[in-house]
C-alpha cells in the first residue's frame, strides 16, 4: 500500500492540475480579503452601521481563521471534489487503470492509495488555506491601518480553531467521497466532478424548497447532506451575518442537532466509501 501511495504522490504532485487547484484556493482567498478591504474603505460603517462593519470585522485577526474555514468549507469542497474526481476518473480516460491494476497489490489497495493521497493533499490544502487567510488578515490589517491586537490568541481560541479545522475537513469529506463514488461508477473524471459538485449545489436548493413545503417534507433535509453540513459549519465562531458555505441556509425550521448531523454525515461517508470499493472490486475493467 505504501508503494502505491508513493506512486500516487508522484502522479498528483507532478500534475499541473494539482498546482492549479492550490493556486485557485489561495488566489480566491487573497481576492476575497482584498475585496473586503476595499469595501471597508469605501463605506466603513455602512448605512445602518452594521453591514460594512462585518467586512471590517472579517479583516480583523480573530475572525480571519474562522472566515478561512468558512471559505474552505465551500470553495475547498468544490476544489477537493475536483481533485478526487480527476484522480480517479482520469485513470479511466487515459486507460491507465489497467496498467496500474496489473502492478497493484489489489484493487482495494489501488483505490485506497488514491483516497489516502487525495486526503493528504486536501489536508495540506486546508492548512495552506488557513495560513493564507491569516497572512492576508495581517496584510489587510496593516493596509487598512487597523491596530494589531493578539489578545484573542488564548488557549481556548486555539483549541476552538483546532477543532474547527477538523470540523471543516469532516464536512468536506462526504462530498469528496461522493465525487469518488461517482468517478468509480461513471468511470470518468467528468461524472465524479459534475455529480459531486452538482449535488453540492442542487441539494442546497432542494433543501430550501423542502423547508418551504412544510409538513414532513420539511424534515427530510435533516437526513440529507446539506442541512447537516450547515449544522457543523455553524459551530464555527464566525459572525452570524457572514456565516457562509453551502447548506441551504435561511429556512432552517427544524435544524438537526450536532450529534445527529455528525452521525448522518458519517453514515453517508461510510456508505459512499463502501459502495465505491465494492463496485470497483467487482467490476470488469474494459475499454
Amino acid at each position: 500500500m505504501i508503494r502505491l501511495i508513493d506512486a500516487e504522490f508522484i502522479k498528483l504532485l507532478k500534475r499541473q492540475m494539482t498546482r492549479v487547484l492550490l493556486f485557485v484556493l489561495v488566489g480566491i482567498l487573497v481576492i476575497m480579503y482584498l475585496l473586503l478591504l476595499a469595501v471597508s474603505k469605501v463605506a466603513p460603517l455602512g448605512g445602518d452601521g452594521r453591514g460594512m462593519g462585518n467586512a471590517e470585522n472579517l479583516l480583523g485577526l480573530p475572525v480571519a481563521i474562522p472566515f478561512a474555514f468558512s471559505m474552505l468549507s465551500s470553495l475547498g469542497t468544490v476544489l477537493a471534489v475536483i481533485l478526487i474526481g480527476s484522480s480517479v476518473g482520469s485513470e479511466y480516460s487515459w486507460r491507465t487503470v489497467r496498467t496500474m491494476l496489473i502492478c497493484s497489490e489489489s484493487r482495494a489497495r489501488f483505490l485506497g492509495a488514491k483516497l489516502v493521497t487525495a486526503a493528504a493533499l486536501i489536508f495540506v490544502g486546508a492548512i495552506i488555506g488557513v495560513a493564507t487567510g491569516f497572512i492576508m488578515s495581517l496584510i489587510t490589517t496593516a493596509l487598512g491601518g487597523y491596530s494589531f491586537d493578539f489578545s484573542f490568541m488564548t488557549s481556548a481560541y486555539i483549541r476552538d480553531q483546532f477543532l474547527q479545522f477538523w470540523r471543516t475537513l469532516f464536512i468536506i469529506m462526504p462530498y469528496v467521497l461522493l465525487g469518488f463514488l461517482f468517478a468509480v461508477v461513471g468511470r470518468s473524471a467528468t461524472s465524479g466532478i459534475a455529480l459531486g459538485i452538482g449535488v453540492l449545489f442542487l441539494e442546497s436548493i432542494i433543501t430550501t424548497l423542502m423547508r418551504l413545503a412544510g409538513g414532513w417534507v420539511a424534515d427530510v433535509p435533516n437526513y440529507l447532506l446539506a442541512a447537516n453540513v450547515r449544522v457543523i459549519a455553524q459551530l464555527n465562531s464566525l459572525p452570524s451575518r457572514v456565516g457562509g458555505g453551502f447548506g441551504g441556509g435561511g429556512f432552517d425550521i427544524s435544524t438537526p442537532g450536532v450529534w445527529h448531523a455528525a452521525i448522518v454525515l458519517s453514515l453517508y461517508s461510510l456508505a459512499f466509501l463502501i459502495a465505491a470499493f465494492y463496485l470497483f472490486r467487482k467490476r470488469d475493467v474494459t475499454s
Partner: peptide, 20 residues
C-alpha cells in the same frame, strides 16, 4: 496507456514504485 503529463521516465518510475 500512460499519463500524458508525465515524461517517459516518470511514467516508468510510477510503475516501478507501485510494483516495488
Amino acid at each position: 496507456a500512460f499519463y500524458p503529463y508525465l515524461s517517459g521516465w516518470d511514467n516508468l518510475e510510477v510503475l516501478a514504485t507501485a510494483t516495488g
